[in-house]
């Protein structure tokens, strides 16, 4: 992003871009990452149960 903010058009594009990435991150990307991480955790535990620990006690 450029530091010069002379024209209004540049201001609005920068503004919109920032808002877009903020909303995208907060409401879509990070929740997806959270669900994905929990799923991976679940699969890892399951895999370990099959290979090492056996069913949970």
């Amino acid at each position: 992003m450029k530091t010069s903010m002379n024209t209004t058009s540049e201001m609005t594009t920068g503004n919109r871009k920032e808002w877009l990435s903020f909303l995208l991150l907060a409401f879509i990307v990070l929740p997806t990452v959270m669900v994905g991480a929990i799923a991976i955790y679940g699969f890892a535990v399951w895999g370990l149960q099959i290979l090492v620990f056996g069913p949970p006690s």
Partner: peptide, 24 residues
């Protein structure tokens, strides 16, 4: 961030987190 205030970011993140956890 150059355009969005820190408070808005924190609050937005907080709300998004709460919604995500609730949804989960």
């Amino acid at each position: 961030s150059t355009k969005i205030g820190l408070g808005v970011l924190v609050m937005g993140g907080f709300i998004a987190g709460a919604i995500a956890w609730l949804g989960f």
